[in-house]
Write a protein that binds this DNA or RNA. Structure first.
Length: 770
DNA sequence: TGTGGATGCCTTTTT
DNA sequence: GGCATCCACA
């Protein structure tokens, strides 16, 4: 076990303590993942069989990376059968195996946040409540919080505090919505994300013999990022570990920043109380940052009252002081960041990928983007809509879901009129009403309109029957046919691709690409599974259960190109960069105006702590005196957090800009941007709703790739470059380019009034001006 | 049944 | 400022 030599004393002790419960407090940059992976390797070498080890993470990516690292230590044959994955994926596996006990079938659907919101919305409508009072998002949050605290519908009805809180919030009928919601999910054979944990708890609660089975099965349990667990997760872990009492949790209370999703910092603060004979290990040596950065972060976090005290230290150089810049506007802030990047690129042997700009809210990325573009600095923005959240992808997947589980109402609602087949809202509402009335799924109604007395005209009845037959046809094949073949057939038969083809924009073209990427993903998944698990046939249901818990967090990071990273602080957790800019350190922004209570404010402070500790060598802070927010210029004060850091670590920098930006100036500035930089407008739109957008649009392996490179110029075009044309809507314009893309003739025109547009030639209806 | 203009709202988002 | 949502209309 040579690998143990690579650990420092505390790390070593934490790794080799495998008897009772242990809590590893891992300060930022202290080698947390190393401890976890080495510990699992150590367990394997000490006779624990892979199947008896359960290791829980929060992201698929974390699980995969860890598995990979362990494989490198002890061989990949050993890691294959580890129970390593996210809470949700591991327990959905168990729930599928035990589905019959809780009134589900093993093919249950997983509703994502959008599905469950849509269901809640229709229930609010059904109960004839005002959506402005019963805001779906808010109700969804209340239900989710209840579930995460293991409050079932019955418990909710009995809980006075909750009902009082609902009354105070003027939503007293939340419990009814919850009740209906739970019924409908069950009826649809569907679970939302919270259910995966809640149902696991109920399963263990109601079936002691099943709990015992898993208790004896899992001999060692490990949990990563323990500070982010919620009550439901804590209870599952607690129950499972009861028998062997061998559990190791790793986390950092100072980096607990997900309470808005139910994470409860008390889990880590009280671990010692909750698990008898816990041994605590504190990893306090930071291997990432300079002393200045570590010390500054320390005095920041010291201002929080709920925390586990620790003394994080660094043996690196003292390093540069943290620079604090005050600027007059957000535009100036963005300019300063871009200039600084340029400057450091010259001074140091840095790559663009050594820089990160971190902000509190996604909307702050805009000005940064513009300034980076102007200065020709390659950048990459993380955030936005992920691949599997995109409309066209969700629609295709809805077909898969529906044919696997005909009772999946949310999937049915999504595709009953996609592609358009003349079944509109009126008809759909009739179906929904009938399904509510008879307490059966929408599919059941659709399947027997007469029985349920649904009143539609004969034309509509015909359309509905066609849809039913289409779906039924697929559904008969779903357990027989290969995933790839069936998926291809579905896309072809339904005409989803050709639907997109008739529209014109570049965005539509990217939809086609995305669907093709999905098909490719199914293919790859199939091949992998066949190779690795030796199965003969891979079904759509297999693919479905794989991706319903997938986010494309996974596919992002592979792309560590030469670019500056722009992301929210939340997204930056776990990452590190040589130089970090933390921008927008202003009241009403950071801390967020939504943070009211002390508890909230402490979490915002931890968020700042996370941001600062991402930096290895340089950390730049900035705040602006004015900022464009919610459509207007607002004046701001420096963040209270700035005074939490001792002056000795901070160097305040005089403003470097002599010209003052006022709101008039800004308007001029914006206008000139939009004209001069119009060449980027199209590029930008294309990438707008992608998870990663970038200036250098080089191809990516990931699913999110949009085909921009296969352009062939057209010779002898009817509208040669440089000629002037007239468009019905956009007016007069000058042709910049004509090219072939996927056999579509495209034309790029600069319309002086409406900017630059890419159009499909066959729809553009252009008039040539002489 | 599909659309366009008015309206109202904004955080963070591992599953 | 910009996006989703909704109602009024074609």
């Amino acid at each position: 076990m040579d690998f143990l030599n690579e650990l420092n004393t505390t790390q070593y002790e934490a790794v080799t303590h495998i008897d009772g419960p242990s809590l590893v407090i891992a300060g930022a940059g202290s080698g947390k993942t190393r401890v976890l992976t080495y510990k699992i390797a150590y367990l394997l070498e000490n006779g624990f069989s892979p199947v008896s080890i359960m290791a829980l993470t929060f992201t698929n990516k974390a699980a995969r990376e860890m598995k990979d690292r362990i494989g490198k230590l002890v061989g990949f044959n050993n890691t294959r059968y580890l129970w390593m994955g996210t809470f949700h994926s591991i327990f959905s596996r168990i729930l599928r195996a035990e589905a019959e006990h809780i009134g589900y079938t093993k093919d249950f659907t997983i509703y994502d946040t959008a599905d469950s919101r849509s269901l809640i919305k229709s229930i609010i409508k059904e109960l004839q409540l005002d959506e402005k009072v019963y805001k779906p998002n808010n109700i969804q949050g209340r239900i989710s919080t209840a579930k995460n605290n293991l409050i079932t519908v019955e418990a909710y009805y009995k809980n006075r505090d909750l009902q009082l809180s609902d009354s105070n919030a003027r939503v007293p009928r939340t419990k009814e919505i919850y009740a209906l919601y739970a019924n409908r999910c069950k009826q649809a054979n569907a679970m939302d994300f919270d259910d995966l944990l809640l149902q696991t708890n109920l399963l263990f609660q109601n079936y002691p013999e099943i709990l015992e089975k898993y208790q004896s099965f899992f001999q060692y349990i490990l949990v990563d990022e323990y500070q982010d667990t919620n009550f439901s997760q804590y209870l599952i872990v607690k129950k499972l570990a009861e028998r062997h009492n061998k559990i190791c949790v790793v986390g950092d209370d100072a980096q607990s920043i997900y309470s808005f999703r139910g994470a409860n910092i008390d889990n880590i603060l009280n671990f010692q109380k909750n698990f008898q004979n816990t041994k605590i290990f504190k990893l306090e040596q930071n291997y990432r940052s300079t002393q200045t950065i570590v010390n500054a972060a320390n005095c920041l976090i010291d201002k929080n009252s709920s925390q586990i005290k620790k003394k994080v230290f660094s043996n690196k150089d003292k390093g540069m002081p943290i620079q604090l810049n005050s600027v007059t506007s957000d535009i100036e802030e963005a300019t300063y960041v871009a200039n600084k990047v340029k400057e450091l690129m010259q001074k140091e042997t840095y790559d663009y990928s050594d820089f990160a700009v971190l902000y509190r809210t996604n909307s702050q990325s805009r000005v940064m983007e513009e300034s980076f573009r102007k200065k020709q600095i390659p950048y990459q923005i993380y955030g936005g809509v992920s691949f599997y959240q995109r409309k066209e992808i969700k629609n295709v997947i809805a077909y898969f879901r529906l044919i696997t589980n005909l009772n999946d109402d949310e999937a049915l609602k999504r595709i009953i009129n996609y592609p358009i087949r003349g079944i509109g809202n009126v008809t759909l509402n009739k179906l929904i009403e009938a399904s509510n009335l008879h307490n059966v799924s929408i599919w059941s109604i659709l399947d027997d309109l007469l029985k349920y007395n649904v009143n539609v005209n004969s034309g509509t009845a015909r359309k509905l029957a066609n849809f039913r037959d289409l779906i039924q046809g697929f559904s008969l094949k779903v357990m027989e046919q290969e995933a790839y073949d069936l998926a291809t057939e579905i896309i072809k038969t339904t005409g989803m691709l050709s639907d997109s083809l008739t529209k014109k924009s570049v965005e539509e073209l990217s939809r086609i690409d995305n669907i093709q990427e999905l098909i490719k993903a199914i293919h790859e998944y199939t091949e992998n599974k066949k190779q690795e698990e030796g199965v003969e046939k891979v079904l759509l249901t297999d693919f479905l259960s794989e991706i319903s818990l997938a986010t494309d967090q996974d596919t992002d990071a592979e792309d560590e190109k030469e670019r500056v990273t722009l992301m929210t602080i939340h997204a930056a957790k776990g990452l590190e960069f040589k130089t970090v800019f933390i921008v927008g350190l202003e009241e009403q922004l950071f801390p967020s105006p939504f943070a009211q209570t002390t508890r909230d404010l402490e979490e915002e402070r931890r968020l700042f702590y996370v941001a600062v500790t991402r930096a290895e060598q340089y950390c730049f802070l900035s705040y602006s005196k004015s900022r464009f927010k919610n459509g207007m210029v607002q004046f701001c004060n420096p963040s209270r957090f700035l005074s939490d850091i001792d002056k000795e670590y901070i160097e305040e920098v005089e403003p470097q800009f002599s010209n003052h930006f006022n709101s008039n100036n800004r308007q001029w500035q914006n206008k000139s941007n939009s004209n001069q930089n119009n060449s980027f407008a199209i590029e930008r739109n294309k990438f707008r709703d992608r998870t990663v957008s970038s200036y250098t649009s080089s191809p990516k392996k990931s699913l999110k790739k949009i085909n921009v490179n296969e352009k062939q110029p057209i010779e002898n075009s009817e509208f040669p470059t440089g000629c002037f044309v007239k468009h019905k809507v956009f007016g007069l314009g000058k042709v910049l380019e004509t090219y072939l893309s996927d056999n579509n003739e495209m034309i790029v025109i600069d319309f002086s009034e409406k900017g630059k547009k890419s159009l499909l030639m066959k729809f553009a209806k252009l008039e040539k001006m002489e």
